[in-house]
């Protein structure tokens, strides 16, 4: 859902850069990563309280009286962002896809559903084929890496991980925080269940982000030490070819640069 005010390709010092994320999206990402890091640093010393690093870390985060407060604040912000993001998404979908349908008089449930499934972030058949192609490539059965579109299956996974994680973690954390109030109507054993949900899902999220996600965007040889797309919003031509070849070809063609399309290498 790129907004028209961003150029699809911008050139700087003779190099092409491809548009990926709007400022609005990048700011949301900043909120996500600052809160997640804060939540991790204040939460994991408690989960792994018997590890040697637990006590120094919690003291660094202000000690047992301050760290939980930071945790509550960061959690509230993240949960707020989740709600905001969902409303923002629904709003955009409504104004850009549903309203035009309405205007054209084609507003049926089937059409809305079809529009929904065509959204670039929604997993589709191509993702499944890409996954298989990738394994073929990685296991040396082919020399042709998969050609990803605007959003690869990896990025979709990265996106839906928090989209599943936050609803699991956030409300659980919120209820545990306000346990005295909630237990006027919720049975106590719900707290036990929420406790497991909260800490175990947090472990999954943190390990995933700090290894898999960071590998994809920072550790990978061509990115190291820091992928910059989360700051600039634009991806270099090399990275674009490497990660989104199908999208690259599409954008180049749209911009009338089909003669300058480079081949996919690895």
């Amino acid at each position: 859902m790129a907004m028209p005010k961003y150029k699809k390709i911008c050139e700087r010092n003779g190099k092409r850069y491809f548009f990926r994320f709007s400022l609005h999206q990048r700011l949301q990402h900043v909120v996500v990563f600052t809160t997640v890091i804060t939540l991790s640093l204040t939460g994991f010393p408690l989960k792994y309280h018997d590890k040697a690093w637990a006590e120094p870390l919690i003291n660094f985060m202000g000690g047992i009286n301050v760290a939980p407060v930071l945790h509550h604040i960061a959690g509230s912000i993240l949960l707020g962002l989740f709600v905001y993001h969902t409303i923002y998404w629904i709003y955009l979908f409504y104004t850009r896809r549903v309203l035009p349908l309405k205007r054209e008089g084609r507003l049926t449930l089937g059409n809305v559903g079809r529009e929904f499934l065509n959204q670039p972030m929604i997993p589709n058949k191509k993702d499944f084929h890409d996954l298989i192609d990738m394994f073929k490539y990685l296991l040396y059965f082919t020399n042709r890496p998969p050609r990803y579109e605007r959003m690869s299956w990896k990025e979709k996974f990265d996106y839906y991980a928090p989209y599943w994680g936050i609803p699991v973690l956030g409300p659980a954390g919120f209820i545990l925080w306000w346990r005295d109030e909630f237990t006027h109507f919720l049975p106590g054993i719900v707290l036990n269940a929420l406790y497991i949900m909260h800490t175990d899902e947090a472990l999954l999220a943190a390990l995933f982000i700090f290894f898999v996600h960071w590998y994809n965007v920072h550790y990978a040889p061509e990115k190291f030490p820091l992928g910059t797309v989360f700051i600039t919003g634009y991806l270099s031509e090399d990275d674009m070819i490497h990660e989104h070849y199908a999208e690259y070809v599409k954008v180049m063609t749209e911009q009338g640069l089909q003669d300058e399309i480079k081949s996919q290498h690895h």
Binding site: D180, T183, F185, L186, G188, I189, N192
Partner: peptide, 12 residues
């Protein structure tokens, strides 16, 4: 948990 509901006791 002075202000908690009685159901808090169900917490294991």
């Amino acid at each position: 948990h002075e202000k908690a509901g009685e159901k808090l006791a169900g917490y294991q």
